[in-house]
Structure formats: C-alpha cells, structure tokens
Design a protein around this nucleic acid. Structure first.
Length: 767
DNA sequence: GAATAAATTGTTTTT
DNA sequence: CAATTTATTC
C-alpha cells in the first residue's frame, strides 16, 4: 500500500492496525482520507474484507467511504460491511430477530408512524394531549431507548412523579403495540440488536468472529446504545478504531453522548491516540477564528488546528440593519463573488434555524440567482409519497394497522373518524388486526359507511392479488391509478397539487429503477429496503446553485465561501439552548460553521429582526466577540463604536423601508428572561445595550423608495420577464415597494416576485 | 362527514 | 406572520 500521500499523523492512523485507536480528527484534517487508507491497508495486510465493519451515521458518508475504498482496493471492498449503524443493525436483525419473538419481515416505523401510534395509545389510555403531547412522549421514549433504558428502567431513574408514571404506561403500551404490529422504530434497530447480542451468546460470538476490525466514524455523535453495541462487538478483538472530533459534537439533543469520545481512553487504556491537527481546508485567518472561538469551551480535549497556508482574506463581519438588509447584503456579496469567477456551488449560506431561510430565498429569487435549499421536507417524508408507501406497506403486511389507518380515507372515500373508531374497537375486541375488521365488519355501521368500507377492502384485495401477478416496475403506477391517489389533486390546479402529483411520479420512477436494479424483487422486498433510504440519492447540485442550509446540515461539507447569517444573541446561540445550558454545544456549532469555509467567511448580524410579526433587537452574538480582532474586517453597523450609516446603503434602501411598524405594535413581544429586548417595549428608540450602540431609525415613508417598475399592476395583466418570459399576474399583495405579485409564467410555472425590484414589462392584452 | 372558523405556536433532525 | 391543529358549523 502506498501511503506516501499521507502526512505523518495520517500515516500513523493508516498504519496502526491492531488494538484500540482513537483518531482525533480536527475539521478539514483529511480524516476520510486517513480512514480509507487504513481500511485499504488492512486489506493489504491480509485482513479479509468481510472481517471489517465500518459504521457511519449517514447513508451519504457510508457511500462515500465505500466508493473511496473501492478506488484503492477494487471490488473486494464490496465484501466489507460499510454502512450506517441503522442499516447494519437492520441486516443483523433480518437474520436473527426471530430469537426475540419478532418476525423477520418486520416493518420499520419512522417518526411519523411513531406519532400516529402514540396518538392511538394515548387516546386509549385516556392521556390528554394537554398533559403530554405525542411529540413529547416520542422524544422521551426515544431518549430512553438511546440510553438503552426500557420502560421500567426509565421510570426508575426518573423523578417518579405522576407524570412519569403516565409516561411509563405509555411507553409500556407503545412497546407492546410495536410488537403486535411487528414493527420497530429507528431506535429499536439499535436497541434490539443490542438485546439480541446480549441475550444470545452464540449470535454475539459469531459477529465477534466476523467483525475482527471495527471502525466508527463521527464517534462523538454516538449514543449510549451505540456505544454498548460497539463495545460488545470489540471486547475480545480490541481492534476498534474510532474517529471523531469532540469539538464537532452538535447532536447531544438527539442522544449523542460526548463522554463516549472524551472517555475513550479510560475504556480502552491501551489506546493509541492519534491527532490530526493539520488543516488542509481553510485559510489561516479562518482557522484562527475557529480556534479562538472553540477555545472558550471548557469541556474539550485540548488541541489546536494549524495550517501551512496563507492568512488569506480577512473575515468579514457585517452589521445589517435588519434581516432584509442582511439578505440583500448576502445576495449582493454573493453576486460579486460570482462575478469574480466563483461557482455558485462554492457559496453556502448557513443559518441556525430553517425559518431564517425565507428572507434569503426571496432575496435570491428576486435577483434570479440560482439557489438550492437543503433540509426542510425530504422526499420520503412528503405526505403524498408516504401515502403511496403506506399502501405498499399494507399490501405487504396487512397487519400494519398504522399504515392502514393512514390510508383508510386517503383519497377521501367517506370513511370518517367515527367509522374508523368503530372498526378499531371491533378489531380490538376480537383481538384481530384492523384489516380483519374491514371484512368482518362491526354491527351498527351506517349503510353508507358499511358500503364505503366494503368498497375499500375490495380495492385492497384486488391489489393484493395483482401485486404478485404484475411486475413491480409497473405495479406502483397501476396502484396509484386504481386508488385515485393522483386524481385527488387534480381538481384544483395549484402549484402545490402539481408538485404532489410530480412527487408521486418521481416515486414511480424510483420504484421502477429499483425493480431494474433488483430483477425479480418483490413488493415485500422493496418495502423492506426502502425504510432506511432517506434521500433520493441526495439533492443534486450539479447545476451549480448557492446552497442554503442549517448549520447542522452543513456538517461534513466545505465551500470556498461561507456566509453565516443570524449571528445574533438569542438566535445563535439560540435562547433555548442558553436557557438549557447548552451554550457549549452552540459554540461547537459555530465552530462547525466557521470551519466549513475554505477561502472566505462572512458573518452577519442584524440590529433588528422581525420575529412573529414584531420587531426585536438582539445584540450581536457572543461568538462574534470571541473572534480575534486582527482577522476581521467590519462592515455596516459598528459594534461597540459610534453608529454610522450602513456602508451598504444602495441596495439596502430599497428593502429597508417596507416595515409595517405602526400596524404591528399590537402584539406585545413575549418577555421571558433572556428574550431579546423589543424596540417597542420600555425604552423605545435607540436604547443601549452594554457595549453596543445601534443607530438608525428606519424610515417609515414608503415614498422614498424608487417607484415600482410597474405601479398599477393588477391581477390578469400579461407581463414579460427577461429570464422567465411571458406570464400572467395571478395575485397582488401589498403595495408600493412591498408589493408582491404571483405570476404564472407560461413556461416556468408560478413565481412570487416584487415588481419594485424585478424588471417586468407589460405586454399587450391577448384577446 | 366535511368544510370552515378559531386558536395555537413557533431550534437543530444523520436513521 | 404563517403554518398547523382544534373546535364549530352545515
């Protein structure tokens, strides 16, 4: 194996093959490279690929690792298990779960299914949503499972009050129902595997022998259950290599336990610790900033990233007047980066929460700059897609009550709540699945309901017969047609309905692609395999668009140019995190954000933001104050100095004046401790926060703004746009500079744009 | 049973 | 504000 491409530390990581190894890999230190070479080197030293288990958190990471290892050692890499924790566990369970009393064809429930199940349970137990919401229950149960706590164990370590008792009962019933439904939730995949290994020594032994070399990526993100699992597998071989960065632990709220990495050396005293501290990604200035910020955390392994590269450009801190100014500035700045030759795909705009994306999106759209928003609703989480999948699941497993309930009245077929309740009660009384109650109907159903139910069950039976006589490739299309799933969205021709129909078509495509890749695959196999697929092979950004995403989803990515917006105390770090003493995790998130940047970093805060319809002033984020002064360049509003007018005035002006000040005073801002000071409460105007002076008075006069290009635009007007071509105005909202128009373009569909900043021309009326 | 009005509520989300 | 859930009519 040629390891000459590696630096000395990476090389050590790739060469230390035996015994426990802890690789502390700073951001951008070539972690994946070291890892893949290590696996290749193992194989090179005669380790059989099937003795290797590499665990990741995301499908994407697994795919990438597998691909890079294949590049080094060829197709034999296929024989190593390189996959996510969840899919590895799934694979183990599909083999041996019968030992735990489940059937091997178990269904995997996602959070949506969990919520539905919990809702039913809580209704049955008479737990009111007011005392405990399904979401809360789900979160607590998930948290318990992440800590490998069953209902009793969980209760024992709780405060054991009445509320905990109630939750305990819900948890017990939940587990019971899952078993009846032959379903596992995501957390169960890990927990049941642990259970299997603990309760069945021969199974454990076989996997211990099989996985002689175990590797865990992003070890700082492991939870207790995963930790136990890995421990169990490697206790004998001691050949465990974990890679991680405690400074990038940002998922504690999902059960990740940072102690797993901090205490690794205690668990494995003979550990070889390797530190990858040379950063190959960012400029020295960016790295300085990252180092300085993260140094404020107390609970961390001391390390310092270094680089051989130049200082590079200073980090720009822009003080925006408000979120519109922020968006306008980002857009403007991005424009000049593009003009300077940067590719759109090399620009990322990051924010703390998804809600912040809207203003940015609008600003980019108005200027016709290409962008892509990551996160939000994923393909397989969409209602219409899940509806189709629920049909497939019911056909594959008629005992799946949760999926059946989901589709029993989709599309609407006059089986309402009370009918479903009657069916469910009847099924429960007879100790049978809901599906049986469809044929063996309870007495007392109305005539209309009874016939609707009969029609529905006939449809299902027909489809069940057809699924085996028809190729999978075309079956889904047939099913959608027969059930009328698309038809229900055809009555109104809205953008939303169209997208639902398109998504179903896309699913049909995905299924037929699957059918082609797996000749002879049955519907059942498809349903089993789809549960852990989350993205349609990740959103593709080959077109080259500016990426908009949360700081969390930016982890693992890198860009030449990174903007972090919303650097305001209360937003980032978020109030809630600060209240719950998770400031250090927020700081790690900030560290993650900063270290995404290769060449340029822009940090933006705003003097004022509209939140829930009231203007609020936050201060600049504490993280901004933690930056070393020497690497930053300030623009816009001064922090800690005399106020001055925004140096970015021109474009900002056209946005800045469309405030709805007077009209929005009604809502008194919520004043919790730590909440931002509202401009409208107490000392109005230019109040002073220690160390910060903000200074500008937003203009109320709408007349100052440039006159809209098309002042008297009205619905029905035919207009033309330089890029989108001809279209017709559907709706108008607002007026003056704030006027927005929904325009249905002949070739591009509906777009929302502001005539004041979009170059529209009016066309002659068509007759 | 379904359409409509009123009320509620705002982080992050790998599987 | 806007998205979503719940209560109230028809």
């Amino acid at each position: 194996m040629n390891l000459n491409d590696l630096n000395p530390e990476q090389r050590k990581a790739a060469e230390t093959l035996e015994g426990p190894v802890l690789i502390l890999a700073g951001a951008g230190s070539g972690k994946t490279r070291a890892l893949t070479y290590r696996v290749a080197n193992l194989i090179d030293h005669g380790v059989k690929p099937w003795h290797i288990l590499a665990l990741t958190f995301t499908n994407k990471a697994a795919r990438e690792m597998k691909q890079r290892i294949t590049q080094l050692v060829g197709p034999q890499a296929e024989e190593a298990w390189i996959s996510t924790f969840h899919s590895s566990c799934c694979r183990i369970l599909r083999r041996d779960i019968e030992k735990l009393g489940y059937s091997r064809s178990f269904t995997i429930y996602d959070t949506d299914d969990q919520d539905r199940l919990l809702k039913n349970i809580m209704k049955e137990l008479g737990v009111s949503e007011k005392t405990l919401t399904t979401r809360e229950a789900r979160a607590i149960i998930s948290d318990a499972k992440n800590k490998a706590l069953g209902p009793d164990e969980w209760f024992h370590q709780s405060s054991r009050r009445q509320a905990d008792q109630r939750l305990h009962d819900v948890y017990v019933a939940y587990e019971e129902r899952l078993r009846e439904l032959n379903a596992l939730d995501f957390d169960d995949l890990l927990l049941r595997t642990l259970e299997l290994l603990l309760q069945h020594p021969p199974v454990l032994q076989s996997y211990r022998e099989r996985f002689q070399y175990v590797l865990v990526d992003e070890y700082q993100d492991t939870n207790y259950t995963q930790y136990q699992l890995v421990r169990l597998l490697t206790d004998q071989s001691r050949n465990l290599c974990v890679v991680g960065d405690d400074d990038q632990s940002i998922y504690s709220w999902r059960g990740a336990d940072i102690r797993n990495i901090l205490d690794f050396e205690k668990d494995y005293p003979e550990t070889a610790v390797i530190r990858l501290e040379q950063n190959y990604r960012s400029t020295a200035n960016i790295l300085d900033a990252a180092n300085q910020v993260i140094a404020n955390n107390m609970e961390r392994k001391d390390k310092r990233l270094w680089t051989e590269t130049d200082p590079g450009e200073p980090i720009t801190v822009y003080g925006a007047r408000n979120e519109r100014d922020e968006a306008a500035w980002v857009t403007w700045q991005a424009r000049s980066l593009l003009d300077a030759g940067e590719k759109p795909g090399e620009i990322a705009v990051l924010y703390r929460s998804n809600a912040q994306s809207r203003v940015l999106e609008e600003a980019l759209r108005e200027r016709n700059m290409p962008y892509i928003i990551y996160g939000g609703l994923r393909f397989y989480d969409r209602k219409e897609v899940k509806d189709v999948l629920a049909y497939l699941r019911v056909l594959a497993n008629p005992a799946d009550d949760i999926s059946l309930m989901r589709i029993i009245n989709v599309p609407k077929r006059a089986i309402g709540e009370s009918t479903v309740q009657a069916l469910a009660d009847h099924a429960r009384a007879g100790g049978m699945p809901l599906f049986s109650a469809l044929t063996d109907q309870p007495a007392g159903l109305g005539k209309r309901a009874a016939s609707a139910v009969s029609q529905f069950v006939m449809l299902l039976l027909k489809l069940m017969a057809e699924k085996d006589s028809m190729p999978l490739k075309s079956f889904v299309t047939h099913l959608i047609e027969e059930t009328g799933l698309k038809e229900q969205y055809r009555d109104k021709d809205t953008e939303e309905n169209q997208s639902r129909i398109d998504n179903m078509s896309e699913l049909e495509g995905a299924v037929s692609e699957y059918a082609e890749e797996h000749p002879g695959a049955t519907l059942e196999e498809y349903v089993e395999n789809i549960a852990l697929v989350t993205d349609l092979d990740s959103q593709d950004n080959s077109q080259g668009a500016i990426s908009l995403m949360t700081l969390h989803s930016a982890k693992g990515l890198e860009f030449n140019n990174v903007f972090i917006t919303g650097m305001d105390e209360g937003i980032f770090p978020s109030n809630r995190s600060v209240e719950e003493n998770r400031e250090e995790e927020e700081r790690r998130l900030c560290y993650v954000g900063i270290t995404r940047a290769r060449k340029r970093l822009f940090l933006i805060h705003a003097a004022e933001r509209f939140l829930y319809n009231s203007p609020q002033s936050y201060g600049p984020s504490c993280f901004l104050q933690e930056l070393p002064e020497r690497v930053i360049r300030r623009m816009g509003e001064r922090i800690g100095g005399p106020a001055r007018k925004s140096s970015f005035s021109r474009s900002a002006d056209s946005y800045g004046d469309s405030f709805g000040y007077g009209s929005s005073v009604r809502t008194a801002p919520r004043q919790k401790t730590g909440q931002p000071v509202s401009r409208l409460s107490g000392a109005a105007g230019l109040e002073t926060i220690p160390g910060v002076t903000r200074g500008f008075v937003p203009s109320k006069a709408a007349g100052i703004s440039p006159a809209p290009a098309l002042p008297q635009l009205k619905a029905g007007d035919r207009v033309s746009h330089p890029t989108f071509g001809p279209g017709v105005v559907k709706r108008i909202t607002g007026e003056g500079a704030g006027m927005k128009a929904v325009i249905l373009f002949d070739r591009w569909g509906e777009k929302l744009m502001k005539p004041s900043v979009t170059p529209l021309t009016r066309l002659e009326e068509d007759i």
